[in-house]
Design a protein around this nucleic acid. Structure first.
Length: 428
RNA sequence: GCGGCAUUAGCUCAGUAGGUAGAGCACUGGAUUGUGAUUCCAGUUGUCACCGGUUCGAUCCCGGUAUGCCGCCCCA
């Protein structure tokens, strides 16, 4: 007996019931993105490893321990399954000079890969929809992103969600703060926990984010980034908040909100929920004004966010009936006998040509079992063809979802009858 | 990556103070040899996750592995 093969850990199959819900969800998301004028961009799932180490940051958890990286056997190139979408999007925009004459509103959607321990709402292959606005400097685009998120949550009917907001300042402000912060933390070097010591020089901002109470005590006395924000950064942050108030979007300023990717500056935000256990954040983003230049493009401001599709889907489906198929055929075509099968096979195509969906019964079986299958297929009508019908060139239609008499019709009359019943179209 | 809990039929789950297993749903057939969904009758379901140990004997006890869930870390 051969070894049982199974899918890789943390990588899930979506079976029909679930896959249909994904398609419905994706359709809602696409309409939403279009309504804000965003256009799609599709980039490869595989990228040179350096894109992420340079883009996401050498000392982030993602780059340090979560990437699926390998060397191609033939070319010896180092490559990585993308752990996030922004770096790829920016790479592509630079490579194809999309930003040359005008700013761009873009979105992407697809699988990302991170080698983490799986949990509900956290998978090794997961899907993100990301929105990137490149070439916009003003606070209005930051606010646009937050407002458009709020609209989607409203459309989906999400509950128990919160918006957290912070400003990380610009690069020089962060550098100044960072210097002072390291100097401060060095005084407590011996009291820092393992993570704290490790991050002291690589990512001191994250030391402040620790949930360890002892660390929080140290963090409380640490220099606050807010105090280092220059006039321009403050004005930008204020302007974003003004627009949010204008749009009546409630938010909470969270000074500890620092984000796990290095490229962020100024506005950062996270949408969180209490309904996903340890996975509180389901959508997050912010401004990344230096990333484009850092990846070799001409200096240009940018702003974006990404949402975890699995997490948003879970929140969305909470309020819904989740059993059974969403898509059902108009017709299940039952037939018995050799002549009937030929007639029915041709009839199925005729009905489809008229615009209806038809499941043609395959695989034999008696009338009873065929009718059972017709019923469980969810079809609105069974169309029945036996040798009697085939000989006289008619088909019987039987309603499966409501009361009603079975009627016999010739094919042309049948499609008119269906149009009238299913779409309320009157025949001439 | 660390700690805890779980894994029994296709699905949801019972069960045995160690003696190789059961229900409901689903599926198939029949009552109704050309008519589903309701009703009644009958039937098929399993290496009790995997590998090893203890034992006369392990689905049950012990160890390891895999997977899932909860928490931590981190993130979407």
């Amino acid at each position: 007996m051969s070894t049982k093969l199974q899918g890789l850990r943390g990588m899930n199959d979506l079976l029909p019931d679930e896959a249909e819900r994904w398609e419905a969800f994706e359709a809602i998301v696409r309409d939403w993105l279009k309504s804000y004028g965003y256009r799609p961009i599709r980039t490869p799932i595989l990228e040179p490893t350096a894109l992420f180490s340079r883009g996401v940051g050498e000392h982030t958890d993602i780059v340090e321990k979560e990437m699926y990286s390998f060397e191609d056997r033939l070319s010896e190139e180092k490559m990585t399954l993308r752990p996030e979408g922004t770096a790829s999007c920016v790479r592509s925009v630079i490579e194809h000079s999309l930003l040359f004459a005008q700013p761009q509103r873009l979105y992407y959607s697809g699988p990302m890969f991170r080698h983490e321990r799986p949990q509900k709402g956290r998978y090794r292959q997961f899907n993100q929809v990301g929105v990137e606005a490149l070439g916009f400097a003003g606070p209005d685009i930051d606010a646009e992103h937050i407002v458009m998120c709020r609209r989607l949550w409203d459309d989906l009917g999400l509950e128990d969600i919160e918006l957290q907001l912070n400003s990380l300042g610009d690069a020089s402000e962060r550098a100044r703060h960072r210097g002072e912060l390291i100097a401060y933390l060095e005084k407590y070097q011996d009291s820092l926990d393992e993570d704290g010591k490790r991050r002291l020089y690589t990512n001191p901002l994250r030391v402040l984010d620790s949930k360890n109470p002892a660390m929080q005590e140290i963090a409380d006395g640490a220099p606050k980034l807010t105090a280092y924000l220059g006039e321009e950064s403050l004005r930008h942050f204020e302007a974003v908040q003004d627009l949010l108030r204008e749009a009546a979007v409630p938010y909470r300023i969270n000074p500890r909100l620092v984000r796990g990717l290095d490229y962020y500056n100024r506005t950062v935000f996270e949408w969180t929920t209490t309904r996903l256990g340890a996975q509180a954040t389901f959508c997050a983003g912010g401004r990344y004004d230096s990333l484009i230049a850092q990846l070799g493009g001409r200096e240009a401001p940018a702003c974006g966010f990404a949402m975890g599709m699995e997490r948003v889907m879970m929140l969305w489906l909470e309020g819904q009936e989740v059993n059974g198929p969403l898509e059902t055929p108009d017709i299940y075509l039952v037939h018995q006998g050799e002549a009937a099968q030929k007639f029915a096979f041709r009839l199925a195509e005729q009905i489809r040509s008229a615009g209806f969906s038809v499941v043609f019964h395959c695989g034999g079986g008696n009338f009873k079992s065929q009718m059972k299958k017709a019923n469980s297929s969810g079809a609105t009508y069974a169309v029945i063809v036996g040798d009697n019908e085939a000989n006289s060139g008619v088909a019987a239609v039987k309603p499966l979802r409501e009361e009603g008499e079975q009627v016999s019709l010739v094919p042309e009359a049948l499609t008119e009858w269906l149009a009238e019943r299913l779409y309320g179209v009157e025949a001439d």
